[in-house]
Amino acid sequence: MVELIAGRFGRSEPRRRVGTYLRGLLAGLERKNGWTLAEHAGAVSPDGMQRLLRTAEWDVDGVRDDLRGYVIDELGDEASGVFVVDETGFIKKGVRSAGVQRQYTGTTGKIDNCQLGVFLAYASNRGRALIDRELYLPTSWTEDRDRCAAAGVPGEVGFATKPQLGLAMLARARDAGLLSSRSWVSADEAYGQNPTFRTWLAERGIPFVLATRNDDMLTSPDGKSRQAKVLATIAGARDPDTGQAGWERRSVGAGAHGERVYDWTAVALDTTGMPAGWGHWLLVRRQTEPAEGKQVRELAFYRCAAPAATPLRELVRVAGARWAIEECFQTAKNEAGLDHYQVRSFRAWHAHITLAMLAAAYLAATRAREAEKGDPQPVAVH
């Protein structure tokens, strides 16, 4: 891995240090912070590790770019690849870590004192890994430039919404030639509800499957606007001529509790603003049976756009791929120390997160190579 990123270091000392840092992230340590990584490397203090993250001269964003290219080289598959945007939380104490405040995080499912990182992942049939990251800075930070300066936030960094941060990462992937009209993008409703996010993708001819809410107002080809849940009722009704319901039962792959099987249907939407020859749909997912203690089967909704001939099974596949980023977060936190850092500055956050992503990507690529050789054993890193 160090050879992959060696060109991003002008001096040998930080280049050697990053090698020990990565080896520590890959080691079986219970915690992977400055102290434990230093001890693993045989150092008497964490000063060198902290200096690597905070002030050492190396190109953090250049390493990010190398990581992104490495993942696509190792796991890329044009037929199944999906780029997924989502955020995760990092629980913190105090008020000095860049971007920290009391805010909702799906990590705990409640409002906590935390930092939020917005991430881009790549998932294919060969594997999945995180490939880009941005630290979310709330307005409580960006409107207090003294506080930003104390945490090392560059003066040119202002407020950006999570969808804007997601688009910045997608734009970098596109500029690198990795995101195109042959790619798919998926994200949850925070992004699917954002018109700018959808428009950016449509204007560049990038197909998408984005979650949305049941009360999203959508326009049908006849020009009428209805809520998503109303359109779902219409789409799932029995055809008066054939007597067939408009649902198809399909699996989106194995989950933590077995095969994830749902009923699916899609209803056409107005194609205004879509590229020529494209379709625009509301995709609806329904539980096959009500959850325990419930009387009604839960629905989930997705806004989709792609070439008009795209079959339902492909929209379903991409909708199912969105959960890969949750697996990426879990793997990177549990196996590569993504959330084990003890740094406060803007630059140090990006430096640690990038290196942890690189370590997790190495594990994903190694697993993929072993799977291709037919080795069922998990990767062991010492």
Rank of each mutant, 00 (worst) to 15 (best):
I72L: 13
I72V: 01
D73E: 04
D77R: 03
A79E: 13
G81L: 13
G81H: 06
G81V: 09
V82H: 03
F83V: 00
V85R: 00
V85L: 10
V85P: 01
V85Y: 08
D86R: 03
D86S: 01
T88S: 05
K92Q: 10
K93Q: 06
G94I: 07
A98Y: 07
G99Q: 08
V100A: 11
Q101G: 02
T105D: 07
G106Q: 10
T108V: 14
K110E: 12
I111H: 07
N113Y: 12
C114K: 06
V118H: 10
F119K: 01
F119A: 00
L120F: 04
A123F: 09
S124T: 02
S124V: 11
N125Q: 12
N125C: 11
N125P: 10
G127Y: 11
G127V: 08
R128A: 04
A129R: 07
I131Y: 10
D132T: 00
E134A: 08
L137K: 04
L137W: 15
P138K: 04
P138C: 09
S140N: 10
E143Y: 12
D144I: 12
C148S: 06
A149P: 01
G152K: 05
V153Y: 11
V153G: 04
P154Q: 10
P154N: 08
V157L: 12
K162D: 02
P163K: 08
P163W: 12
G166I: 08
G166R: 01
L167Y: 09
R174D: 02
A176R: 07
